[in-house]
């Protein structure tokens, strides 16, 4: 062994080895616990029907078929609910970002008149809730029950997200904004051409927080919509899981492509539907991973 190598890698003592070994083992178990249920689900969605009903699917497909996934896509309202959720997520995130930015920017100005009062309003609404029933009555009164608006507008501004953006704006160097004002730019111009380009990471984080919230929302969609045409992804998934027995009966009364396939089982359908809904999240994950970690640390604790 050369001297140089020895210097760079000091041999580990017993306690270091033990901690390293324990950490590796326990965290590997944790990672398996996180991922194996998902593998089981994906395997179930493409395994042959008899294996699924008998419970003989573990972490690898038992046989292979795509009929269940085809059935879910063609014969259930998966695509309608996907469309609804996409509309709500895209439109909702755009509206929320607009409201969040236009609120956070003025509130980040230390010399804004009545700044404390405005901020206090947002803080109060964060800690005191009207509750489920009054919120429902408001949406009912506005006449937007069973529309996309009912799933979007209650989240037009989430106070917590607004404060993340506001704190970030406050941390930007004020000289840049001042020099822009001296150059004759008004507040809107400064916001658009100076502040926003400097805030891309935090804006991406908050946009993600909003998008995940819209995408995953179950309760509000359930409370505020009732028609099948308005059903969102999460409502559809809940229906298919909790009514899988009713679906089973349907499977026998309606024919699939002329003949009933043994491969389309209720458990397989649940697995396929949930599996399909996981795919967009997995695809967006590199992006989520990049901005979310930063976002949590920005948002969780205010020094």
């Amino acid at each position: 062994m050369s001297r140089k190598k020895n210097k760079n890698s000091i041999p580990l003592d017993f306690s270091e080895k033990l901690v390293l070994g324990l950490s590796n083992t326990i965290l590997t178990i944790f990672a398996l616990v996180a991922i194996l249920p998902c593998l089981n689900l994906f395997s179930k969605s493409v395994s042959i029907g008899p294996a699924v009903t008998a419970g003989f699917v573990y972490f690898w497909p038992n046989g292979f078929q795509l009929e269940t996934i085809e059935y879910v896509l063609a014969k259930t309202s998966f695509l309608t609910s996907l469309k609804n959720t996409l509309i709500i997520t895209v439109a909702g995130t755009a509206i929320s970002m607009f409201t969040t930015i236009t609120t956070a920017y003025p509130l980040s100005k230390p010399d804004l008149s009545f700044r404390k009062l405005f901020t206090l309003l947002y803080v109060i609404s964060m800690v005191f809730f009207g509750g489920i029933v009054p919120a429902y009555m408001v949406v009912h009164t506005l006449g937007i029950l069973d529309t996309y608006w009912a799933c979007i507008l209650p989240f037009a501004i989430v106070q917590f997200n607004m404060f993340i953006v506001k704190n970030y704006f406050e941390g930007l160097p004020s000289e840049v904004m001042e020099s822009s004002a001296i150059d004759g730019a008004n507040d809107l111009r400064t916001l658009i051409s100076i502040v926003l380009p400097m805030s891309v990471p935090v804006l991406a984080t908050v946009a993600l927080l909003y998008a995940v919230n819209y995408w995953n929302n179950y309760f509000h969609a359930m409370m505020y919509t009732n028609s099948t045409a308005m059903r969102t992804m999460q409502l559809y998934l809940y229906d298919i899981i909790s009514n899988s027995q009713a679906f089973a009966e349907n499977l026998f009364t309606t024919s699939y492509g002329g003949t009933m396939s043994v491969n389309v089982t209720t458990d397989g359908m649940v697995a396929s539907a949930v599996g399909l809904s996981i795919i967009p999240i997995v695809l967006a994950y590199p992006f989520i991973q990049r901005y979310m970690v930063k976002g949590i640390t920005v948002g969780s604790v205010k020094g």
Binding site: F98, T102, T103, F118, G130, P134, L153, A156, D187
Partner: peptide
């Protein structure tokens, strides 16, 4: 004036979806 105009959308949604339910209590 623009700074104060910007506050309007947020306050509007705050009043409708956060404070109006409080009245409903």
């Amino acid at each position: 004036p623009l700074l104060y105009l910007m506050l309007i959308p947020g306050l509007f949604f705050l009043c409708i979806y956060k404070f109006w339910p409080l009245y409903g209590l």
